[in-house]
Amino acid sequence: MKRVVRFGERQVSLEWKAGGGRIAAVIDSRGYEVSVLEVEPGVYSILAGTRAYEVRVAGGERKWMVQSGGKSWQAEVIDPRAASARRGGLGREGRQVLAAPMPGKVVRVLVEEGAMVEEGQGLVVVEAMKMQNEMKAPKAGKVVALAARAGSSVAAGDELVTLE
């Protein structure tokens, strides 16, 4: 089976064969033969030779949080056959969407639709867990859409302000 795994900053290609509780895998050009056991839901005990690892995988639809040895990564696993279909359609030239960095509540909206803003100017203040985070304009431009409303709750990734 072939997969492309985007792991933190890096992208690696992985090919593996499974059988009899063992997995033979090639990552880039490095080969592994490992024994894998899912000891708890999402918790894998992996033996590579005598070397023991425990890996935790949790979360998402396509995105996973992977933890092992005290390190953690955000992983996205892509079936290479489906990958080309998903490319393209990203950010239009010159348009910047400011999204909520965390789930929380919009406490203040500092601009109005149609306003011209400077780079670094505060646009929206989002609060979660008693911490306020002022979202600043990544570049100078015009506020073409303003989805943020003071007092409303937002999820991580929700659009707040669109600049052009």
């Binding site: 795994v5 996973w64 092992s68 040895g69």
Partner: peptide
């Protein structure tokens, strides 16, 4: 590191 590769294997397996 090997740790990284092993984690990649687990993630791919889990997702699949």
């Amino acid at each position: 590191s090997d740790l990284f590769d092993i984690a990649v294997i687990a993630a791919a397996l889990h997702a699949t």
